[in-house]
Computed example of a mutant assay.
Amino acid sequence: MTVKQLRAFLAVAQNLSFAQACERLHLSQPALSLAIKNLEESLGGQLLTRTTRSVRLTPEGETLLPIARCLLADWDNAEELLLQHFNLQVGKVAVAAMPSFASNRLPAALRAFRDAYPRVNVAVHDVINERVMEMVRDRRVELGVVFEPATLDGLQFTPLYNDRFVAVVPASGALADKGELSWTDLLTQPFITLQRPSAVRLLLEESIAARYGKLPVAFESHQLATVGRMVAEGLGVSAVPRLCQRQMEELGARCLPLSESYVERRVGLLQLAGFQLSSAAQAMGDVLIAQALAFSDGSG
């Protein structure tokens, strides 16, 4: 059976008229008759009896009628649902993002996405860099936002922007009056940072070890918000990606540029290499790219 044959049968069965069925389906009478004939041949028996004055269903035609209604309704519903997904009238997308991005830049992107596609559900996983990579590989999420991995191993990385670390100091301390700081100035103070295996912590350690030695860690936490509050309370200093600057300042700390030995890393989108994104995930990626351009231009 084909969908075309079932539509032809249903139109005749509901109208009990070939002429009315032709008008409804916009088919010629020979084309309609051929569709019915092919359906009967494929099923092995007559479904309709036709005279010059009337059309009637055979017992087998009566049996097929409710089945045809159900099959065609399911077909039409499936077609409509997929059209809605492709047109982003409905759908869902899952995104994983490292905490420094999830708590700072992602909310604005989600607002722009929701404004454009209000009926698409978004699931956000706020997890460490390495976990983002695992979730993309396991296909638990379609998109991830991470610092650029050292090795991709089946993943595809699309750069969004370079993010340079800034110093975080108490707003009321002597360091806050400076226009910028050197790493030498910063590392003379008790250092507050994220716990391993945070990508921010690992990047800091790797970047300054050769020139400045071991980080003078006095306090460490799993949450950026806790790091910011501890700095604001005068317990020490820190260094975070610039995308976290607004969050640190809202927590009461002061952020300053670092004048030497820049620590920076590319932030970007992660997906499975060679894997076709859903329409919803593609749209989310486009929103994140647009937001990153605004951020790089200084307007984000």
Rank of each mutant, 00 (worst) to 15 (best):
M1D: 06
A11Y: 01
Q20M: 10
R24M: 09
R24V: 04
L25Q: 00
I36K: 12
L39N: 02
L43P: 10
L43Q: 11
R53C: 13
R53I: 14
V55S: 03
P59C: 03
T63D: 10
T63N: 15
L71F: 11
L71Q: 09
A73Y: 09
D74I: 08
E79T: 13
E79W: 08
Q89C: 04
V90I: 15
K92D: 15
A97Y: 04
A102Y: 10
S103N: 14
L110M: 01
P118Y: 00
R119L: 13
V122S: 06
M133N: 14
E134A: 08
M135K: 09
R137I: 00
R140C: 14
G144T: 00
G144M: 01
G144D: 12
V146M: 07
P149Q: 04
L155F: 02
N162R: 10
F165A: 07
V168S: 00
V168F: 04
V169F: 05
P170G: 07
P170T: 05
A171Q: 13
S172E: 15
A174Y: 13
L175F: 01
G179I: 05
L181C: 07
F191R: 00
Q195L: 10
S198V: 07
A199G: 01
L202A: 13
L204D: 00
A210D: 06
Y212G: 05
G213F: 00
L215S: 04
V217C: 02
E220L: 02
E220W: 02
Q223L: 11
Q223C: 03
L224I: 10
A225L: 10
M230C: 09
M230A: 05
E233A: 11
L235A: 02
L235V: 05
G236L: 03
V237D: 11
V237T: 01
V237G: 00
L243G: 11
L243A: 08
Q247G: 13
Q247M: 14
E250Y: 07
L251Y: 08
L256N: 04
L258C: 03
S259A: 15
E260T: 12
Y262M: 15
E264W: 06
G268I: 04
L270P: 10
L272E: 06
A273F: 13
Q276K: 11
Q276V: 12
L277S: 05
S278C: 02
S279V: 08
A281Y: 03
A283P: 15
M284N: 03
G285N: 04
V287C: 09
F295W: 11
F295I: 03
G298A: 05
